[in-house]
Simulated scan of single mutants.
Amino acid sequence: MSRLLFFLPSLQPGGAEGVWVKIANQMSFNHEVHFAYGITGSLETTLSERVERHDLGAARALSCLTPLVEVLGRVEPDWLLATLNYANVVAVWSTLLSDKPIKVALRESTSWERFDDQRNTCSQRVLPAVLPSVYRQADLVLAPSIGIQKQLVERGVQTSLLANPVIDQDLFRLSQEPSTCRRPFVLAVGRLVWEKGFDALLESWAISGLGATLDLVILGEGPERERLEGLATHLGVRGSVKMPGFDTNPFRYMANAELCVLSSRHEGMPNVLIQALACGARVVATDCKTGPREVLEDGKWGQLVPVDDIEALADGLEVGLNSPKPQGIDLSAYQAKNVAAELERMLEEFDA
């Protein structure tokens, strides 16, 4: 049995954060698991009672460095496991500052072209130059998709593939609950940020004319809410666009939707796409550089359309609504227990 310390800057809801909590919970069946975090959030309530918590009391990732080094000294873990860019940097630095022999496993979930976004801060634009050298100091680097794995290998970082653990029994149980929608609906799920492409989705929805008989439900919260609501009004579709906010159970919507749509400009590995398929939904997705094509096996399990192509997405909505529901897709690689078993195998292989 190993002693594992998982690290995140925040336990606020997010895709990467949810993945790390699920893996920690699964690993705690066979290992002594600790979890260090900068600030708490609703995800703390989903941490297993078997997991020992360490509140670092730091509002930013870089501020976690000193308290994390202190936790490393107390816990003396065999492995420190981190995910997210800044957290990965802090994890490596913390082990360099610690006087304990601790191995480091890092998970990178960001597709590299996202670093080219001119909206990024100065520090975010510096990351591409820093991360490869930092990651090469880790003992194990993980990627959730073949696309991200390839991008890291091209930058001289030896990387192993580990799927996201986004399917478990809770998903199937929660998907049986009724949704709150009164009309048949198309569903999109994600944080309300530019990267998710909800503005393009609204434009596609407007020219499709589907609002006459269907609603478009966008589950999520974020800084783009006001702009998206204004755009829906400007396009004349506000009446058929519902934005109820973040919901702890999106699976009941996925199971009851006529179609689930992913309109993202960037994705590492789109968890909501995998979960929608697990709920038996029809899907249409933008063909980001990494993620959707891999999940949909080149379009076998759902429509793929070019990123930011308004007319193509509108056509994809029509085609998707008239397509049969996917049958026979194998999503076992994304089951939480299988992902934890694969990570356990990697750690044991490294220790052998």
Score class of each variant (00 low, 15 high):
15 G>V: 00
338 N>P: 05
244 P>F: 10
280 G>W: 06
173 R>D: 15
295 V>W: 04
19 V>L: 08
203 E>D: 10
183 R>V: 11
90 V>P: 01
220 G>A: 07
168 D>M: 00
227 R>S: 13
89 V>N: 02
331 L>Q: 06
99 D>R: 14
6 F>M: 12
67 P>A: 07
315 D>Y: 06
291 G>N: 07
331 L>R: 07
56 L>A: 06
198 F>T: 08
333 A>D: 14
10 S>Y: 11
277 L>S: 03
275 Q>H: 10
154 E>Q: 15
140 L>I: 14
160 S>M: 12
258 E>L: 10
25 N>C: 10
344 E>V: 11
34 H>N: 09
271 N>K: 07
233 T>Q: 15
233 T>I: 13
279 C>T: 09
223 P>T: 13
135 Y>S: 08
156 G>H: 09
340 A>I: 12
310 I>W: 02
67 P>R: 02
215 D>L: 04
184 P>E: 03
143 A>F: 09
79 W>F: 13
263 S>W: 00
270 P>S: 11
188 A>N: 01
250 P>W: 07
127 L>S: 12
92 V>T: 09
182 R>S: 15
47 L>Y: 03
204 S>K: 01
302 G>P: 08
124 Q>N: 12
256 N>G: 09
276 A>P: 06
115 F>L: 05
179 S>Q: 05
96 L>E: 15
122 C>F: 15
76 E>S: 13
76 E>W: 00
266 H>L: 14
75 V>C: 05
257 A>Y: 04
257 A>Q: 04
225 R>L: 13
156 G>Y: 09
6 F>A: 09
134 V>C: 02
228 L>K: 03
105 A>L: 04
303 Q>Y: 10
138 A>L: 05
255 A>H: 09
321 L>H: 10
123 S>C: 05
58 A>R: 02
